[in-house]
């Protein structure tokens, strides 16, 4: 069974995403969830959970921030409320949050999600030993590595099959600091369309923004594993995440619908990757090239 997980930025988009075929909605808010399309309040999350459950679908809530004392102290209340809402799963990236969850003995399932630090089956086995139901794989892994990892584990490895990937998180306000150095102010937020370019690489354009968690930088390309979905399915990688952190509203829903269609085609044996890749390229915003990131590289190419 393939599970299609998509971020959701609002109740309205959540409805549309479920219509489009999403199985699980990924939502969250500050100060516990990282790099979300739109941080939601606990009330908004509650509404989405109720709605999704009514339709027999699931909701995962992001609790994957690196937490400071102040956040960890607020966490028990937040987790308690998520448990009351009967949220299906949460993501955790800070071992302190696992410690809190154990102390509270709440009936909350969690996936371990520490971004680029999840790179082997043995690591994931460790977190499963600490209660995790699965893990979110680093985007810096190759498909070969992912397949080898999944073959060693019964619990699912979640793989990002679409969207931008974060390549840098700083605790500092790097944009603000730059503007202040030059004695000015300037845009810093996510939806202002800010980019960095390495002058030595003309084609590079790395989205950058600041929020409560610091500064985040993303890859030039939106990841897409559309062409590899069939292989993934055959090799047991069946938990697919679509990240809409930089793609909003209907545009993201259309992408999700296409991945759902691809999933159905794979299940019925009618999947033609070229056709789906072409259709995805047409949906893709012009200034965001698609790519396969590290997935199609050889493990030896990165060292």
């Amino acid at each position: 069974m393939i599970e299609l997980i998509t971020t959701a930025e609002s109740y309205q988009q959540a409805e549309a995403l479920l219509d489009a075929g999403a199985d699980t909605l990924y939502v969250g808010g500050h100060p516990f969830g990282l790099r979300l399309p739109n941080p939601l309040s606990i009330e908004e999350i509650g509404k989405i959970v109720t709605y999704a459950h009514r339709r027999g679908k699931k909701v995962t809530v992001a609790c994957n921030a690196l937490m400071h004392n102040e956040q960890i102290e607020k966490l028990p209340l937040y987790l308690t409320r998520l448990a009351e809402l009967e949220v299906d799963t949460i993501t955790i990236g800070d071992p302190g949050a696992i410690f809190v969850l154990k102390e509270l003995q709440l009936p909350l399932k969690f996936f371990y999600d520490a971004g680029t630090l999840v790179t082997s089956a043995e690591q994931i086995a460790f977190w499963i030993g600490q209660g995790a139901s699965g893990a979110v794989a680093a985007r810096e892994l190759t498909l070969k590595e992912l397949i080898a990892m999944q073959q060693k584990l019964e619990q699912p490895i979640e793989v990002q099959v679409y969207g931008p990937t974060c390549i840098h998180q700083s605790g500092r306000p790097l944009l603000t600091n730059y503007y202040h150095y030059t004695g000015s102010d300037g845009p810093v937020t996510k939806d202002q369309g800010l980019y960095l370019r390495d002058p030595k690489n003309e084609e590079s354009q790395y989205p950058i923004f600041e929020d409560e968690d610091g500064t985040h930088i993303f890859s030039t390309e939106d990841l897409s594993l559309m062409g590899q979905l069939k292989v993934m399915h055959e090799q047991g990688l069946n938990t697919w995440k679509l990240d809409g952190v930089l793609l909003h509203g209907e545009a993201f829903v259309r992408v999700a619908a296409l991945f759902h269609e691809a999933r159905l085609a794979i299940e019925s044996g009618a999947f033609v990757p070229e056709s789906f890749c072409n259709r995805l390229a047409k949906l893709q915003p012009e200034h965001r090239p698609l790519g396969t990131g590290f997935y199609m590289k050889n493990p030896e190419d990165v060292h």
Binding site: L66, I167, H168, S170, I217
Partner: peptide, 27 residues
């Protein structure tokens, strides 16, 4: 400048894995 371990600039820019000793100080 990043949270240590949470930076893959080198991975993405020059195929060197920062968390396996390849940091190219891209920051």
């Amino acid at each position: 400048i990043a949270y240590s371990g949470r930076c893959t600039l080198s991975n993405h820019m020059v195929n060197r894995d920062a968390n396996r000793g390849g940091c190219a100080q891209s920051c």
